[in-house]
């Protein structure tokens, strides 16, 4: 699926450049890594923000994800796109934060993960619709929230979401089916 968001942010345009920069960063060129960090800062922060619904937590997670990526860079073998690898790191850190620092060993989209409907957003200045969607997304069970954020807000394909979450395309689709029903039902008064 290619959403307007994906085209707007030019995800695919970065791929070839990323390989060059990642190779140089692995050789110790700090400015190559700085370019990568700059390139993905918005996406890391936005993903964390939409998973956590909290600016400060999202900022912390985005920073930690970027630093963790640098620490693990020597282990990145290019088997996936660099962006996919980064999304996996930031998603894992955000989920750890959501679960109050309890470690998440796997992002496998298990149905028994607890709901996080007790973490309301704090930003009161946004438009009411935006607040309503934020609430509705935050009320989704964590596996559904993750796939909605990655697919509908970050514009990633089912296959990319499956790779990031360590799941399968059918599982991602199944969670999306349920998430969309929940969101549309919750937001029916806001259209």
């Amino acid at each position: 699926m290619d959403s307007p968001c994906r085209e707007e942010w030019g995800l695919s345009d970065y791929t070839q450049d990323d390989v060059y920069l990642v190779n140089r960063a692995q050789e110790g060129y700090f400015d190559a890594y700085q370019e990568l960090a700059s390139r993905y800062a918005v996406r890391m922060y936005r993903t964390a923000l939409r998973l956590l619904s909290n600016h400060e937590d999202a900022q912390d997670v985005a920073q930690d994800a970027s630093i963790n990526a640098w620490r693990r860079l020597e282990h990145f073998r290019g088997q996936s796109a660099y962006s996919t690898w980064l999304y996996r790191i930031v998603t894992r850190l955000a989920l750890n934060k959501l679960q109050r620092d309890k470690p998440v060993d796997s992002l496998e989209l298990l149905p028994d993960l607890p709901s996080a409907d007790d973490s309301p957003p704090e930003n009161l200045e946004r438009h009411e619709v935006i607040d309503a969607v934020t609430d509705a997304v935050a009320a989704l069970p964590i596996p559904q929230r993750v796939v909605v954020v990655l697919h509908h807000f970050e514009g990633l394909s089912y296959a990319e979401v499956a790779a990031i979450t360590g799941s399968s395309v059918p599982a991602v689709r199944s969670h999306l089916f349920r998430a969309r029903r929940s969101l549309t039902y919750t937001l029916r008064e806001w259209r």
Partner: peptide, 30 residues
């Protein structure tokens, strides 16, 4: 019914100022 989600997805999000600088400062320190 889906339109509020589309509107939400279109909302621009800016990275906090200094995020990358903070990252690089910590990396340089490491």
């Amino acid at each position: 019914l889906w339109s509020p989600v589309v509107e939400f997805a279109k909302q621009p999000v800016q990275a906090p100022p200094g995020l990358v600088d903070n990252v690089m400062d910590r990396i340089y320190a490491l």
